[in-house]
Design a protein around this nucleic acid. Structure first.
Length: 549
RNA sequence: GGCCCGGUGGUCAAGAGGCCUAAGACACCGCCCUUUCACGGCGGUAACACGAGUUCGAAUCUCGUACGGGUCACCA
């Protein structure tokens, strides 16, 4: 036993605190019964992607639904893979998607809360304190194996078809003595600290996963690394120490972690910690060719959450869509509560899908349209200009030149009982309303086959003289109906349908002619409103222009 | 390969042994409404991976097979 204490002091001479110090520093949270403490622990090795956002959302809503706390912790223990700006991108992204952060990093550089620091690189001493304790107890030891040695062992294991890894008799330094360790250290040999796993591969551990249900796995017998040679912990060890000290109740993370659970549970047990409840979330998949596969940061542009911002999806629409994947009962709830925030939804992990859902852009569009159509023209104006300012400068200039005019454009067929559902994202707006802005207007005057050019021109010339921009919708259409008979068109569609051979067409056809003349398109929202917003002068001008063309 | 996990229409899914002749939503198609288009309304196409077993009865329970996914680092 004294050997272990000597070893501990030899390996971690600068660690003088005892675990009790931290246990007292971070007392239990003062939270009501049943409150869940969740977290998202991103590593700044890339930008915020859909999977991370999804996991964050699930953690967030789990905390919210139980009156708990959701915090962020930066897992920057892999200095090699870290990219600059990673933390900022992830935290800012969470903020942009209104995934509210109660504690931890709430911006790229700022953290708050009583359980910090919330960045693992700033917690080295804490981890080392616990490692030192394990060494003293004979539950951890230094390993001096080089990458080459490890590789060699692995090759032997593979060739003999036995389970690979650093375990049992293959764990070379498992029983290293103080004297041996001292000698190697004196030689300047680098080392890692490994767990002296008390596990037996023959034993099973059973745990209840909050989303997948009961899972049975072999106990861990691998002497995995706790502290890397740079003194920084591996994920596994940091997870155990941090989630214990930060009093996480529910660890909800991607299901790629599921195979590590035996390691984690073992660690909690050895350290004398109460393990959290685990819930493993299935990844969001994507269809590639004919095959389903996990959505990938590298291959799929939509994996980077930034993609949605560029396209002009409202962040709440993306969240709304993600909620439909996260909770099978969300859509029913939404129908019953169209105006509530998703935050009011009572989320239940049991309602999560066990298998990975395919990311469905079509469904996202539908969700978006249903949200966008409920926006007021003023809200539209503010959202679209904000987007354009960042992603389409030219359009931004056009939109903001005359805000009242732009708002009037957005008001067309909006704020009515049956709003249109044409727009899903802001990068569609420019094209959708291009005819409302002279510099974007590029008309196509092609007429439908059933209408002759002569008839169209005759109608337009006639119409020009009667148009008034103060007419209401009914009067406006009546004027078209009045002209119709003069050109052998039926005033009423029914009349025409009853005797198509008697007419060249009907009033509806003439309104199409007018629509084409004014907007250069066959399909648009309400023409009367469009013409009112455009103003009489521009309408007449466009009609004349169309007649010439 | 070892160890885990998964499976209902094209997609998301409801489903806890009889209420399943299998819900709903998205998409698609048709009809109606209608000055275009949308919206809305009505209707339609389309699914329990396969094979054994348990049972009076299986989408549901058990076991196999094939398939899909994850994981086997001093990465998280």
């Amino acid at each position: 036993m004294t050997d272990n204490i000597l070893l501990a002091d030899l390996l971690l001479p600068n660690i003088t605190k005892e675990p009790e110090y931290y246990e007292n520093l971070y007392p239990a949270r003062n939270l009501p019964e049943g409150a869940r403490v969740t977290r998202i622990a991103p590593s700044p090795t890339g930008y915020l992607h859909l999977g991370t956002l999804f996991a964050a959302l699930v953690n967030r809503i789990t905390a919210t639904s139980s009156g708990g706390v959701f915090y962020t912790r930066i897992e920057d223990t892999d200095k090699k893979r870290e990219i600059k700006g990673g933390i900022e991108d992830i935290i800012d992204g969470l903020n942009r998607f209104s995934v509210e952060i109660d504690e931890g990093f709430f911006s790229g550089t700022n953290q708050k809360g009583e359980y910090g620091p919330y960045k693992q690189s700033e917690r080295a001493e804490i981890y080392q304190t616990y490692v030192k304790k394990l060494i003293k107890e004979g539950l951890a030891y230094p390993c001096f194996c080089t990458a080459e040695e490890l590789e060699e062992v692995r090759n032997i294991q593979e060739s003999r078809k036995i389970r690979t890894g650093y375990h049992g008799e293959w764990a070379k330094h498992r029983n290293i003595t103080y004297a041996e360790a001292k000698e190697l250290i004196d030689q300047g040999k680098p080392f890692v600290i490994r767990l002296k796993s008390p596990g037996n591969e023959q034993n099973k551990i059973i745990f209840e996963d909050a989303v997948k249900g009961k899972i049975e796995m072999p106990e861990n017998d691998e002497d995995f690394v706790l502290l890397k040679s740079d003194g920084i912990p591996t994920y596994h060890f940091a997870h155990a120490v941090d989630d214990h000290l930060m009093h996480t109740t529910h660890v909800l993370r991607g299901d790629e972690w599921i195979s590590s659970v035996p390691k984690h549970i073992q660690l909690f047990k050895i350290l004398g910690f109460k393990p959290p409840k685990y819930g493993h979330i299935s990844p969001i998949m994507k269809l590639d060719g004919g095959a389903k596969r996990k959505i990938s940061k590298r291959k799929d542009p939509e994996a980077a959450v930034h993609f949605f911002a560029e396209q002009g999806y409202m962040s709440e629409c993306v969240i709304e869509y993600l909620m439909t994947i996260a909770a099978s009962d969300f859509e029913d709830w939404r129908r019953a509560n169209p105006d509530k925030s998703y935050k009011d939804f009572k989320f239940n992990l049991k309602k999560m899908s066990v298998s990975g859902a395919l990311f469905d852009p079509v469904k996202l569009i539908d969700v978006s349209k249903n949200r966008v159509c409920r926006l007021s023209s003023t809200q539209m104006y503010s959202l679209v200009t904000d987007w354009a300012k960042e992603f389409d400068k030219e359009f931004y200039e056009i939109l903001t030149r005359n805000p009242d005019y732009t708002k009037a454009v957005f008001a067309i067929d909006r704020d009515v009982p049956k709003p249109r559902k044409d727009i899903a994202k802001w990068n569609e707006v420019k094209e959708y309303f291009s005819y409302m802005f002279d510099e974007l207007y590029s008309p196509d005057f092609t007429l439908p086959e059933n209408i002759s050019k002569e008839a169209a021109v005759a109608f337009l010339n006639e119409y020009k003289s009667v148009y008034s921009d103060t007419d209401d919708k009914q009067t406006w259409f009546n004027k078209i109906k009045e002209i119709a008979p003069k050109l052998q068109f039926a005033s009423e569609t029914k009349e025409y349908k009853a005797n198509p051979e008697k007419y060249k067409g009907h009033a509806g056809d003439l309104s199409t002619v007018l629509r084409i003349a004014i907007t250069g398109r066959r399909n648009t929202p309400d023409l009367c409103s469009i013409m009112q917003v455009l103003g009489k002068d521009r309408c007449i001008e466009r009609i004349e222009n169309a007649v010439r063309g």
